[in-house]
């Protein structure tokens, strides 16, 4: 039976709702909204149930941006898929020219390297910015530490947790473990084993702090290293380093101002990095970043 609504079917509208047309007639991929890749058992079970019922290929696809995609869903079943997933609060993601579901690493709750709470931030950002219309796609990612598994330099807007170390001579026993810990060469030990710190070489990973047996190395401040203008795809571009130590409470304001600037300055289907290359990064720095510098 032909669906009457199909005549009204607008592919762009479908994409904004996270339904992607497949090769075969009437079949769609349903992209699910999984901010930061954290998925409760309950939602996982429901996804599996819905996928078994409506997916035609016997598998789902785990997307590069941490979502689950139920593939091979017939157009007629889309309403049912939405309704059944919604019973556990599982929402559909988006595609097209808008702010996408943000990605993140596991964060700092169980990962010993984590410095900033990427998972907490990703939920807040998803809540506030998901789906906002832009000139082109706009990808945001959060890495808890400078190991940067979520690849901040490939994001339109990438955040990476960092910690500024501070040394107290009083506590130091001269054990030299910090200079061993620092693979960046930012800490070398003097003849008494005391550290000589070179901030120019420091990448703010906190390895010195979390290995120091006496807490002589501590945290001066924590925050997000911010990169803007990265992308992969047909014409990859590495993001520009924009700000060090942006605090949690300024993240949403920074995203808001950046996306607004992007929408006011980009031309046609242009990513923000391409826009920088055309109008000059300095324009963005002057109009947005200045207000966020310490």
């Amino acid at each position: 039976m032909e669906i009457q609504d199909k005549s009204k079917l607008n592919l762009e509208d479908m994409k904004s709702g996270g339904f992607i047309k497949e090769r075969k007639k009437d079949l769609f991929t349903v992209r699910l909204r999984v901010p930061g890749g954290r998925l409760s058992f309950e939602k996982m079970e429901k996804m599996a149930e819905v996928a078994k019922k409506y997916g035609r290929y016997g598998y789902v696809h785990v997307s590069v941006r941490q979502s689950i995609e139920i593939v091979g869903v017939h157009f007629d079943d889309i309403d049912a898929v939405i309704k059944e997933l919604d019973s556990v609060g599982q929402k559909i993601a988006s595609c097209g020219a808008r702010v996408r579901v943000p990605t993140a690493c596991g964060g700092c709750e169980y990962n010993p390297n984590g410095i900033m709470d990427a998972q907490k931030m990703v939920l807040e950002v998803d809540e506030k910015f998901f789906g906002r219309e832009c000139h082109h796609k706009f990808k945001i990612g959060f890495a808890g530490c400078p190991i940067d598994c979520p690849k901040s330099s490939e994001m339109d807007l990438g955040f990476m947790g960092m910690v500024d170390p501070e040394w107290s001579e009083e506590e130091c026993t001269g054990c030299t473990l910090c200079s061993k810990a620092c693979i960046e060469g930012a800490i070398v030990s003097d003849s008494d084993g005391k550290p000589i710190y070179d901030p120019e070489k420091c990448i703010y990973c906190g390895d010195c702090i979390n290995r120091c047996p006496t807490d002589a190395w501590g945290e001066k401040r924590k925050g997000w290293f911010v990169r803007v203008g990265g992308k992969h795809g047909r014409h990859p571009r590495s993001a520009d380093d924009i700000i060090k130590f942006l605090p949690n409470e300024k993240v949403c304001d920074f995203i808001d101002k950046t996306v607004t600037w992007y929408n006011n300055n980009a031309s046609g289907r242009e990513r923000i990095g391409t826009c920088f290359d055309r109008v000059g990064l300095d324009k963005y720095k002057k109009e947005v970043v200045e207000d966020f510098k310490e």
Binding site: P112, C175, T176, L177, K180, A181, D207, N210, R211, P213
Partner: peptide, 21 residues
């Protein structure tokens, strides 16, 4: 080993008192 073992020990609440090269 000298980078990782001290970190894991610290995470588990033990204390390194002395390091000899």
């Amino acid at each position: 080993p000298i980078r990782s073992v001290p970190k894991s020990l610290k995470d588990e609440g033990h204390k390194i008192l002395k390091v000899d090269d």
